[in-house]
């Protein structure tokens, strides 16, 4: 419980730093940085191992939490007719299992929103596009960006009249010259635009067909989930140290304060992301 909990706290920090790019780097630069980061996170072998450790931690933490809660409920089969637990313990400490279950629901929905789309979804992810205006004519043209920084015009992928398209996308991201069966480059999945569109941006020119009309509810859901996380961590962070036997009067106050600071700052920063994205749509 404690080891997985603390590992998940570390995960939160990493995940937060990655996501803060969404609000700290704006415009084309931000889109590029975030999509390159997303590519790195899905392809680096070290990150892959880390991600499996994270999935296992969540699973183990949740199962352990449920088993613990069931066992602890069994330890008091007859409840008190009149009980006043508020006199001796904090509210979050008494609702850890409920808070944790809500977090689990959030994790599942959150992964369905983005992670599933990125990895498995049958409708292909939009690829990273840039719109460039021709300096002479002023006409706008759209290109895909490749890993080598090349620009491939999107028009090459659509046939015109009798003419079939010269290029096609294979395996989700690879650009092939059809006739000679040659790989011309590889594009980036445009997770950035998917996220922005989820939180209310109109991203149709980036190839994301539908903007989320329910974005306000998405933002609310994410913000509430972060409040739930804050309560879970308000108790959980310091609790983990006690569970591991780390209790010393010189450090107890510090651990408690660090835990409460962590419980406020980390979820608050997470929550700011959808709020800002929604407001700047």
């Amino acid at each position: 419980m404690a080891l997985t909990g603390l590992f998940l706290c570390l995960f939160l920090v990493g995940h937060l730093l990655g996501n803060l790019q969404l609000i700290f780097i704006t415009g084309e630069e931000g889109k590029r940085a975030f999509n390159e980061y997303a590519y790195f996170m899905t392809h680096n072998p070290f990150v892959k191992v880390l991600s499996y450790v994270t999935y296992l931690s969540i699973l183990f933490h949740a199962i352990d939490g449920f088993l613990l809660t069931i066992k602890n409920k069994k330890a008091r089969p007859v409840p008190y007719a009149y009980n006043n637990p508020g006199a001796n313990s904090s509210m979050p400490s008494r609702y850890m299992a409920l808070l944790g279950s809500l977090i689990l629901i959030f994790i599942v929905t959150h992964m369905a929103n983005f992670w599933w789309k990125m990895k498995f979804s049958s409708d292909p992810m939009p690829l990273h596009q840039v719109v460039v205006a021709n300096p002479q004519s002023g006409a706008e043209e759209t290109f895909y960006i490749t890993h080598t920084g090349d620009y491939v015009p999107t028009s090459a992928f659509v046939g015109e009249g009798e003419m079939p398209a010269a290029m096609e996308v294979r395996n989700g991201t690879e650009f092939y010259l059809k006739e000679v069966n040659l790989k011309r480059g590889e594009g980036y999945k445009d997770l950035h635009s998917v996220v922005l569109s989820f939180f209310g941006h109109d991203k149709s020119k980036d190839g994301v067909p539908e903007k989320n009309e329910m974005a306000l509810f998405a933002v609310l859901f994410y913000v509430i989930a972060m409040m739930v996380l804050a309560f879970h961590l308000w108790h959980g962070f310091a609790s983990a140290f006690q569970s591991l036997g780390l209790n010393h009067k010189a450090y107890n106050k510090m651990i408690k304060m660090a835990g409460q600071a962590f419980a406020i700052i980390v979820p608050a920063l997470f929550a700011i992301i959808p709020i800002l994205l929604f407001m700047n749509k």
Binding site: L68, N88, S89, S243
Partner: peptide, 11 residues
């Protein structure tokens, strides 16, 4: 004996 496990509520 069937006692539960500590979750550090401090009660």
């Amino acid at each position: 004996e069937g006692f539960g496990n500590c979750t550090n509520t401090g009660a």
